[in-house]
């Protein structure tokens, strides 16, 4: 078992003919992900990377191929539309890689998604991977290995850093999910923690948070009251000054809220072991196996 994506994932790529979309589609296919369709309006009827059939609309693609997960690589100004189109076509899992979507657009998109049966991962995220089964994202596949640790993170390369350290120690991952660095996203830490708690393959969880917002505090509350599996956490941005955006749109301490110290305190109060630096995460996880 694993969560969200696996061997049965039939992936649709929105924006398959763009530079990013084409490059990563090739990478996903060579990892073994079943890419069944691509969508680029106006290019329906042609064939994309890996001989993937291209459609004009998501609806057509779903009808013809039975796609059940969509990944979005379209530019920020078109991404909200792409997410809504996927949801309206009934795709249950939508992964949006795109960075730089205006927050007020995401506010509406998320409120609309809540009225549908679709789950969004991201935006501004690396995607997710179930090692050996499906890579739905832009992460380098070879740094992962299959195993008992669930990983959930707001970051991209910091997740690679942690996952690679686990893999080099011979500790594999059930699924690694990047929920993204934007202030309004589709899936929270709590959503993913709940899935890992229910997943029989996942024995322990690594959670990588960062400054900004209160998603980590909510996660701490969930861990304290609902979780039985051990969680190891790291919070990036302990040295970040207030009021400055640290790369990610969501990584900002504003109005005195969202500091690393608050998040670490909340997690420690929930009996989560918080690593002092990324290298410590794999050590803590190894000691718990």
């Amino acid at each position: 078992m694993s969560i969200l994506v696996n061997r049965d994932t039939r992936l649709l790529v929105q924006g398959i003919t763009g530079r990013e979309g084409a490059f990563h589609t090739e990478q996903m296919i060579s990892y073994g992900t079943r890419v069944v369709a691509g969508v680029t309006p106006g290019k329906g009827g042609s064939w994309g990377v890996g001989n993937t059939p291209i459609f004009d609309t998501v609806q057509e693609a779903v009808h013809a191929t039975g796609a059940n997960v969509s990944i979005i690589y379209v530019p920020a100004r078109f991404a909200p539309d792409a997410i809504l189109e996927a949801a309206d076509a009934g795709i249950p899992l939508i992964v949006c890689i795109t960075e730089g979507i205006p927050a007020l657009d995401m506010l509406k998109v998320r409120a609309y998604l809540d009225t549908t049966g679709s789950r969004l991962i991201g935006p501004n995220c690396p995607g997710l991977i179930t090692p050996g089964e499906a890579k739905v994202g832009i992460m380098p596949g070879y740094i992962h290995a299959r195993g008992p640790v669930g990983v959930v993170s707001r970051s991209g390369t910091l997740t690679y850093e942690v996952v690679y350290a686990l893999t080099l120690r011979g500790i594999g991952q059930s699924t690694a999910v990047g929920i993204g660095g934007d202030p309004i996203n589709g899936t929270s830490f709590v959503d993913v923690l709940k899935m890992f708690e229910e997943d029989p393959e996942t024995e322990q969880v690594v959670m990588i948070g960062e400054i900004g917002g209160t998603d980590e505090e909510r996660a701490a509350e969930f861990i304290r009251t609902k979780m039985t599996k051990p969680v190891t956490a790291f919070i990036a941005g302990q040295t970040a000054p207030p009021g400055k955006r640290m790369g990610h749109a969501g990584a900002i301490i504003s109005g005195g809220k969202g500091t690393a110290a608050d998040k670490i305190a909340a997690l420690q109060a929930a009996n989560v072991q918080v690593a002092r630096h990324p290298g410590e995460i794999a050590e803590i996880v190894a000691a718990r196996l």
Partner: peptide, 17 residues
Amino acid sequence: MVNGAGLAMATMDIIKF
């Protein structure tokens, strides 16, 4: 100089550490 915002913050943090 780091690639990725989360890793860049973590790099700052570990320097302090």
